[in-house]
């Protein structure tokens, strides 16, 4: 199954580590292009540092669970693979949770319940189902790294944007508004900025994401007008129609009982 798929869909050269990382970062960026895993994207992007931690934690889980699933997929019977995948993913999430609790307690408090909730992040399950269960260990591992870094970059950028507009800080350094670190006349000008609090509140998350998707829609339309292939673009939200991981998952769960 694996050899056949590799040649048919991508070609052997396409599964090299570099290609996988590039694919995750840009071509199939999970947040911006595929539009999956929206819950953590909205919830933890109140600041850039939260975004980066969440992103790296997800990358860790994604890379290792992809590797282990690629290793085990021939042993696991098809009918019980959903629970088996979930156990693998949940184990790595527990590892991350314990590590964060031990070494970064303040970040762990800030991210709270969203760290254990990495288990139900559609990106991880989607990649396990769509990629790792059909490919060898090394490409799967790098697919996880690429997808994870793509997710990290996207949510860090969203976090940075919300943080700058909403509280005038970037990575907790005051840039805009009162008490800015920028000296001189420029600093004086920047200190006149009034933070728009709504951007760090819950409603801001919805607005920022709405503008982001609208921008992506615009790009997609322009690409379609030039006759380029836009079939890779997602439609937003993981439970809406034809998306990477979800319909497959639902179908298999129905098969399982």
């Amino acid at each position: 199954m694996s050899g056949e798929k590799k040649k048919g869909a991508l070609g052997l050269k396409m599964d090299s580590p570099m290609e996988r990382v590039f694919n995750g970062l840009i071509v199939e960026n999970p947040t911006l292009v595929l539009m999956i895993g929206m819950c953590p994207t909205l919830a933890v992007t109140t600041s850039a540092i939260n975004g980066i931690t969440m992103g790296l934690a997800t990358t860790f889980v994604l890379a290792l669970s992809n590797a282990v699933i690629a290793l085990l997929h021939k042993i696991i019977p098809d009918t019980v693979r959903i629970p088996a995948f979930i156990v693998v993913i949940a184990s790595f999430v527990t590892v991350v949770q314990l590590l964060l609790e031990a070494y970064m307690p303040s970040l762990n408090d800030a991210l709270g319940v969203y760290i254990p909730l990495i288990v139900v992040n559609c990106i991880i399950f989607g990649r396990a189902e769509a990629y790792a269960s059909k490919h060898a260990v090394v490409p799967s591992f790098f697919d996880g790294i690429g997808m994870g870094l793509g997710f990290t970059c996207a949510i860090t950028c969203i976090g940075l944007l919300r943080e700058i507009i909403g509280s005038g800080t970037a990575f907790s350094v005051q840039i805009l508004g009162e008490g800015t670190v920028v000296p001189g006349a420029v600093g004086k000008f920047l200190s006149m900025y009034q933070p728009v609090r709504i951007f760090v509140m819950q409603a801001g998350a919805f607005f920022v994401l709405a503008c982001l998707i609208a921008t992506m829609n615009r790009i997609k339309r322009n690409m379609a007008a030039k006759g380029k292939d836009t079939s890779k673009f997602g439609v937003g939200g993981c439970c809406t129609v034809n998306d990477a991981g979800k319909p497959v998952k639902v179908k298999h769960e129905k098969e399982a009982d």
Binding site: M35, F206, F207, L209, A210, C211, I213, A214, T215, N217, R218, R221, V235, G236, G237, T240
Partner: peptide, 11 residues
């Protein structure tokens, strides 16, 4: 046009 679908729901 660009806000049709998901973006307007998010707003």
């Amino acid at each position: 046009e660009s806000f049709k679908g998901m973006p307007i729901v998010l707003i």
